[in-house]
Amino acid sequence: MDGAAVNPAVEVRDVHKFYGDFHALRGVNLKIARGEVCVAIGPSGSGKSTLLRCINQLETISAGRIYLNGELQGYREINGKLYELSPRQIAQQRRRTGMVFQRFNLFPHMTALENTIEGPVQVKRQIKAEAIERGMALLERVGMSGLEKRYPNQLSGGQQQRVAIARALAMDPEVMLFDEPTSALDPELVGEVLDVIKDLARTGMTMMLVTHEIGFAREVADQLVFMDNGMIVESGSPYDVLTNPQEARTQAFLSKVL
């Protein structure tokens, strides 16, 4: 706990990621303060998903360090040597980040409510009645009241994504990660999901979000990073990056999407 107040919620330090010979992340540095909303934009294939997946350890990093509230992720470091954590310890660290996927990835054999309480009951060993009460409250918060008993295949894409957000929130994560949460949605459903995320940003949740919705990024981001070719090319306030980009690559990308 010591120094937790001064540590950033997320710190990515010179992280590289190789898939075989392919260099997907090339020395990424990023700090997200507590309560801050960091939005990553950039062309497809630039490594945005890879970065998010490294932060919650769905991928192992090839070089560098990632810290969450000051705690090194995935390893114990003794005298400059890294020792792999046990699968249990890694699972424990993963609980501290909530992840929302582009394709929702709800558990199809569970209802909206069952999806939401699965983590609290099975992983955190919460009492079921309490988990249900909390789950209902979370589903209400994402505008899903009355649909708790529906299975994912009985919900629209936007509704599924909102359940996925409730499922992630149910674990009380320190950081929420969103990987293009609206990219798989029909245009008219994008708004309802963005509204929920905006709402979450207002409550002071630390978030990192990958999106192609530039207008939304401008609205919610405290920090905007532009990624290209496995690197963070430019970062700063959304106003600076979007209206006054310094790098040629940022300018080129923005001229295409704005």
Binding site: P87, R94, R95, G98, N105, G119
Partner: peptide
């Protein structure tokens, strides 16, 4: 779908 395993891992399941 492999996304199922990832979603389960993301909520910290062993």
């Amino acid at each position: 779908d492999p996304g199922q395993i990832e979603a389960a891992q993301a909520i910290g399941m062993s």
